[in-house]
């Protein structure tokens, strides 16, 4: 089975977020980057599927050369080879088109990615890739098993789960608990440098959305401590000040 896992290169979840250039650019100074946590789940499950029934796992990232350490981490975790489409990812449509243009003739049996990135959290790329390739796209997938050419999966829906069955190929937007994150081992880290990382020029695609400006949420105010015996005061504040009741 030939699996493509699309990964994002995103700020670490503990990174301090700030902006420059009149709040139009993300300030990446001192920021550690990681594989998107949802993409990491997709990658972990892809590696498990490969280990169970053979095949290959290719990772793909749309990004500049700065993303290569993140791509090599995916190789250290167990992907066989990697593709970087050399472009600044602008919006979801641009990224989806790059992925679809690469995947359309590459013969993947399964295309996996996180249900969303954790920087812009659009959650749209898997759906767009499905549309562009004319394939089903399902998200958020929390369980995925493959039997022959058939996939059995569980998807989270409001208040419960739905169980689905469909034929390969398709696009899966993944989330926990599809697999546990894999920690690369020393051998994986050593071998990551010798695995193939192909850099491809981007295909023609235009961004559909232009970013105007970022705005941080207002800083949190001080916490008011209310004595445990003074329920009346608590209710009054919740009603008049916080206006939540």
């Amino acid at each position: 089975m030939k699996i493509l896992v699309c990964i994002t290169h995103v700020p670490d979840t503990t990174a301090k977020i700030s902006f420059t250039d009149d709040n139009t650019k993300f300030n990446s100074d001192g920021v550690q980057y990681i594989i998107g946590p949802y993409d990491d789940y997709a990658l972990a499950r892809a590696v498990e599927l490969k280990e169970a029934s053979g095949g290959t796992v290719t990772v793909l990232n749309v990004g500049t050369s700065e993303t290569e350490p993140t791509i090599r981490k995916a190789l250290a975790i167990g992907a066989d080879d990697a593709i970087r489409i050399d472009a600044e990812p602008t919006d979801s449509y641009f990224v989806a088109e790059q992925i679809a243009n690469h995947a359309k003739d590459a013969g993947y049996d399964l295309i996996m990615m996180g249900r969303e990135s954790i920087d812009f959290n659009g959650g749209m790329v898997h759906g767009m890739v499905g549309e562009l390739l004319g394939l089903p796209a399902i998200s958020p997938v929390m369980k995925l098993d493959i039997e022959g050419q058939t996939a059995k999966l569980a998807r989270e829906i409001e208040g419960g789960k739905e169980y689905l069955e469909l034929d390969l190929p398709f696009i899966a937007g993944c989330q926990e608990p599809i697999a546990e994150w894999k920690i690369p081992n020393m051998r994986g880290i050593m071998s990551a440098r010798s695995k193939k990382l192909e850099v491809l020029a981007p295909s023609d695609a235009s961004e559909a959305v232009k970013l105007q400006q970022y705005e941080l949420p207002p800083a949190k105010g001080d916490v008011k401590m209310i004595d445990a015996d003074n329920v009346g005061e608590l209710v009054k504040l919740l009603k008049n000040e916080a206006k939540v009741i």
Binding site: P69, R72, K73, P184, I189, A192, R193
Partner: peptide, 10 residues
């Protein structure tokens, strides 16, 4: 180096 960064994270 990149290997050290990856080992540290691991």
């Amino acid at each position: 180096n990149e290997n050290q960064e990856m080992i540290a994270q691991m």
